[in-house]
Simulated assay, not measured.
Amino acid sequence: MFKGSFVALVTPMDEKGDIDYKGLQKLVEFHIQNGSHGLVSVGTTGESATLPFDEHIDVVKRTVEFAQNKIPVIAGSGANSTAEAIFLTEQLGQTGIAGFLSVVPYYNKPQQKGMIAHFNAIADAADLPVILYNVPSRTVADMLPETVAELATHKNIIGIKDATGSIQRLKDTQALVSEDFIILSGDDASAYEFLSEGGHGVISVTANIVPAQMAELCNLAAAGQYTQAREVNEQISALHEALFIEPNPVLPKWALYKMGLIESANLRLPLVLPELESKKYIEQVMRETGVL
């Protein structure tokens, strides 16, 4: 269930900044039609940091409703407060999701022992699988492979989204966990190499824009057809870089707006619309890759 291409789904908003649920439904249907293996609702790309709990829970609930059991939905449920993360885990567990994505606490800079205590407490409160999320470029704190291995012994912790971009980190983690522990890439630029080294899939920002290609990349890699997978990756590699020239999800939302999939590229403050040069650049890359 947790292998392949999972889309780190944006949360569309209207001109007033309210959640655009019609746009959300359109996006969910777009990904189902294009072969995505699953969705991640209200993770980093879904602007989890600026959605209050009631909206966060409602967006996840509606995403599950729109998915109609056709593909699994993972809910972002992390927080820098363990108590808040447990609250979200308990509330989101009632929405029909397949599992949780729980990020390393940000700003606090917890020790490795603190991370172990944090995630074990969350997993104890969970009735569904928990996927760890390590993204030190955002959280500052970096969850080490030894910590992952200890947490992997908890029956409810079944995998990790590794957004370090380090293939060596993947290998170090693989050496310490069982083969059935799911390791997903959280870095699109290195995703092909990650998959070729035994990663099980991706939680992808690029998949917002080219879901069929990201799904095909994962399918080919899973079948051991790495030459063909590399060719697919080369076709979209410019997007991996272009989508991150401003903080995620600024450019993904702009790209989806230009594709006509959402009616507004609005974001929650403190994020704002991209600079003119960024708009021009992403649109150029989209034309070159055949998206526009």
Score class of each variant (00 low, 15 high):
25 Q>Y: 15
24 L>Y: 11
266 N>T: 12
73 V>Q: 14
143 M>A: 11
228 Q>R: 06
175 A>P: 08
229 A>F: 08
113 K>E: 08
32 I>H: 04
243 L>I: 00
288 E>Q: 01
56 H>N: 15
34 N>T: 01
200 H>I: 03
169 R>G: 12
118 H>K: 04
219 N>H: 15
278 S>L: 10
241 E>V: 09
76 G>P: 02
271 L>S: 13
8 A>G: 06
114 G>I: 00
175 A>D: 06
5 S>Q: 00
120 N>K: 14
17 G>Q: 04
102 S>R: 01
12 P>Q: 02
61 K>V: 05
92 L>E: 15
127 D>Q: 12
93 G>T: 02
184 L>C: 03
237 S>Q: 09
45 T>L: 07
10 V>H: 11
264 S>Y: 05
176 L>K: 11
215 A>T: 00
239 L>P: 03
193 E>G: 11
112 Q>V: 07
78 G>H: 01
162 D>G: 14
73 V>M: 07
54 D>W: 06
271 L>R: 10
188 D>N: 11
35 G>E: 10
132 L>N: 15
259 M>P: 14
19 I>K: 03
242 A>V: 03
245 I>F: 15
243 L>E: 06
281 Y>N: 05
233 N>G: 12
15 E>N: 12
282 I>Y: 11
246 E>S: 15
46 G>R: 05
27 L>W: 05
116 I>W: 15
13 M>A: 11
43 G>K: 04
58 D>F: 06
67 A>K: 11
20 D>K: 07
49 A>S: 13
72 P>M: 05
262 I>D: 00
232 V>A: 06
30 F>S: 13
118 H>V: 05
2 F>I: 01
288 E>V: 04
12 P>F: 02
7 V>D: 01
283 E>H: 14
75 A>I: 10
126 A>W: 12
40 V>N: 10
194 F>R: 04
44 T>Y: 07
266 N>K: 09
84 E>W: 10
54 D>V: 13
3 K>G: 03
61 K>G: 09
5 S>L: 02
148 V>P: 11
18 D>T: 03
148 V>E: 00
267 L>D: 01
21 Y>E: 05
264 S>D: 04
59 V>A: 12
155 K>E: 07
196 S>Y: 06
118 H>R: 14
241 E>Y: 14
54 D>T: 02
171 K>A: 00
133 Y>N: 01
245 I>Q: 07
213 Q>T: 00
289 T>L: 00
54 D>A: 15
40 V>M: 12
170 L>C: 04
171 K>R: 11
234 E>F: 10
31 H>S: 15
164 T>I: 05
126 A>D: 05
91 Q>I: 02
1 M>V: 03
267 L>K: 09
27 L>I: 01
291 V>H: 10
213 Q>A: 09
32 I>N: 08
148 V>T: 12
89 T>H: 01
123 A>K: 06
290 G>N: 13
159 G>D: 01
222 A>N: 05
231 E>D: 09
232 V>E: 06
233 N>T: 04
262 I>K: 08
228 Q>F: 09
8 A>S: 04
116 I>D: 14
179 E>G: 07
73 V>N: 11
280 K>D: 14
70 K>L: 02
247 P>Y: 14
289 T>C: 15
54 D>K: 14
195 L>A: 03
144 L>R: 00
127 D>I: 12
244 F>M: 01
178 S>E: 06
48 S>M: 04
156 N>T: 05
251 L>G: 08
109 K>A: 02
287 R>S: 05
172 D>G: 10
243 L>P: 08
77 S>I: 07
